[in-house]
Design a protein around this nucleic acid. Structure first.
Lengths: 224, 224
DNA sequence: GACAGTGTTAAACGGTCGTTTAAGCTGATG
DNA sequence: CATCAGCTTAAACGACCGTTTAACACTGTC
């Protein structure tokens, strides 16, 4: 048998409540009394445990990042562009990257308030990072960019850096938009905004991206 | 000769200052005293002219939307999928749509604080709309979605609605990401994050999107 | 039993918030 | 000139903000 899950201590409860409330109302909009009440704790504990509201916010962000191990570590290393068989390997790496990224973006029990809030908070932070947390954010995002760019370079060694970066942006943009637009998409399309089956979505992103990249294997079967 | 530009009245100055400050600090973070000072006005005028802070925010959003005429009106109507020559026309419509959308997203004197702020504010509002302004936002966004979806339907009448919507999301996602990621991209790549020439970027988005859509004309020349 | 260290509490502090109030200013109208 | 509506002002209001303080409970150590 496993060890019984011990009830979360005050510090953890404060972090979870902070994620929820910061996501719902933003840094300025959420008050520490409100956050503390959500954690069934006293508001003075924010200063005690986190040196104030700003510290609580920073730790909440870190907690989101450390919630699960970085999924990139499960992926195969991207081969150098001139390695033998680089093309096929890189192709599979890109497929895996898209799958992992979408999975990560969407991997939360729908209705689990903390998971949902963590996504909202992260997305907002990525769009307009609080100066104090820009470094933390960059450190988390960098590996994803590096991995994706390596894939693209191996797949299209003929393209220059600027063009590759535009390609990367186009791929990344689709994936992020898929999550970021959920709110307004539901307004436009009603529910469910997207196919229930994530696999369909992943397949679409993969096909669209490979065709966009100009990888001949993916063309001309936009729908196999 | 044209009429001399009359100096902006207090109400307009308040709106401009509101756009700048709301963009910089969010709705809760920006104070009306600060906004009023930026407009060289008294903070009580916010209540007088706009029935309070929330009203000022709503009017600021409207002011952004009405800043220029909706650029979609310059575009040709999208032909029905079964009209003669629909394919070529729709193709051109999609090209124009991408050009207009990117142009619109980026059309601000760099360094013009109000234009820049308007973009930031709009992007944030689109990602997590303030409940009070959701209807206003939807009304503004809807025409773009309709236009884009019409193009896609004419170009790929063989695809079902769900698939077409995924295609639309992929295209739209690229374009929005291009603007939304400017902040973090500058952190990663330094300046300039993207090619100086907007035309290069527009061309990339168009090619990438058409290939992604599975339009044979755009393949296999990822780089003509 | 005295002690120190850690976690928690209610209360109070100074400051800022959005809003309201009452008075003043301006220019057009009678 | 008197009047009035529209705009602007400084001051005050009550509410809430993040933080600090001092007291209290609990633990393990000497």
């Amino acid at each position: 048998m496993t060890t019984a899950p011990s009830p979360p201590d005050t510090r953890s409860r404060l972090l979870e409540s902070a994620i929820v409330h910061f996501a719902a109302k933003g840094f300025e909009g959420a008050g520490i009394r409100e956050i503390a009440k959500g954690a069934q704790a006293n508001s003075a504990l924010v200063t005690y445990h986190f040196c104030g509201k700003e510290g609580l916010y920073r730790e909440a962000l870190k907690a989101i990042f450390n919630r699960k191990p970085c999924p990139l570590t499960q992926l195969a290393a991207v081969p150098a562009a001139d390695a033998p068989g680089a093309r096929e390997t890189a192709l599979q790496c890109l497929r895996d990257y898209i799958r992992v990224f979408v999975g990560e973006l969407m991997d939360c029990d729908p209705g689990h308030p903390v998971d949902e809030a963590a996504m909202v908070l992260m997305a907002r932070e990525m769009q307009s990072p609080r100066p104090a947390s820009a470094a933390l954010l960059l450190e988390q995002v960098q590996p994803y960019v590096v991995y994706l760019m390596s894939c693209l370079q191996a797949l299209r060694p003929d393209l220059d850096d600027d063009t590759l970066f535009l390609m990367g942006g186009s791929i990344q943009g689709q994936l992020l938009h898929f999550r970021n637009s959920l709110g307004i998409t539901r307004l436009i399309r009603g529910n469910p905004a997207f196919p229930e089956d994530l696999e369909t979505v992943i397949q679409h992103f993969t096909d669209f991206s490979l065709r966009g990249l100009g990888v001949p294997e993916a063309f001309p079967q936009p729908r196999p």
